[in-house]
Amino acid sequence: EAHAAIDTFTKYLDIDEDFATVLVEEGFSTLEELAYVPMKELLEIEGLDEPTVEALRERAKNALATIAQ
């Protein structure tokens, strides 16, 4: 499951495998979680700032909209 989540994140969020791995290690496994989890939870991840989190959430929401079509 972790590998599938990493693949999904790299494909749809335009991030590298290392960043995707950090997200999975922090407990995220779906685009929905990244799109809708409280921003505070993402900001608790070391190295993430508000602009990065906002961009990540926007990419996740856009990916979900694209997949739904």
Rank of each mutant, 00 (worst) to 15 (best):
A2D: 09
R59H: 05
K11C: 06
A63V: 08
I6H: 04
E50W: 12
H3Q: 15
A20Y: 02
E46N: 11
G27K: 02
L13M: 04
H3I: 12
L31G: 01
E33D: 11
T8A: 10
E58Y: 08
E58V: 11
D16F: 04
T30I: 03
V22F: 15
I67G: 06
V24G: 01
T30H: 05
P38Y: 06
L34G: 01
L48D: 01
D7M: 15
E50C: 07
D49F: 05
I15G: 01
E1T: 12
A65D: 09
K40D: 10
L13F: 02
E17H: 12
E44Y: 10
V22R: 15
E26D: 05
Y12M: 07
T66S: 10
L42C: 03
V53E: 01
K11N: 06
D16G: 10
G27W: 03
K11M: 09
A20W: 02
A60P: 01
L13K: 01
I15C: 03
Q69G: 11
N62P: 00
F9H: 00
L13Q: 00
L34C: 02
I15Q: 01
F9S: 00
E33Q: 14
I15K: 00
D7K: 14
L23A: 00
L13C: 03
I6C: 04
E25N: 15
R59F: 04
E26G: 15
A63F: 04
S29L: 15
E17L: 12
T21A: 13
E33A: 12
T21W: 15
L34P: 00
E1Q: 12
D14Y: 12
D16A: 08
K61P: 01
F19H: 03
E32V: 08
Q69L: 07
A68V: 08
A55I: 10
F9K: 00
K11I: 05
E17V: 15
P51C: 08
A60E: 01
R59M: 09
S29F: 15
T10F: 04
D49R: 04
D16M: 06
A35C: 06
T10I: 14
A4C: 08
E25C: 13
E44K: 15
V37F: 09
L48E: 02
Y36K: 10
T8R: 13
V53D: 00
K11R: 12
P51R: 14
A60H: 01
E26F: 15
F28T: 01
N62C: 10
T52A: 11
A35T: 06
M39F: 08
P51S: 13
A68Y: 06
L31T: 01
L34I: 15
E26K: 15
A68D: 08
E41R: 15
E41Y: 14
D14N: 13
I6L: 06
F28M: 03
I15S: 01
E33R: 11
T30C: 05
T30L: 05
I15F: 02
A55W: 14
A60F: 02
V53F: 07
A2G: 11
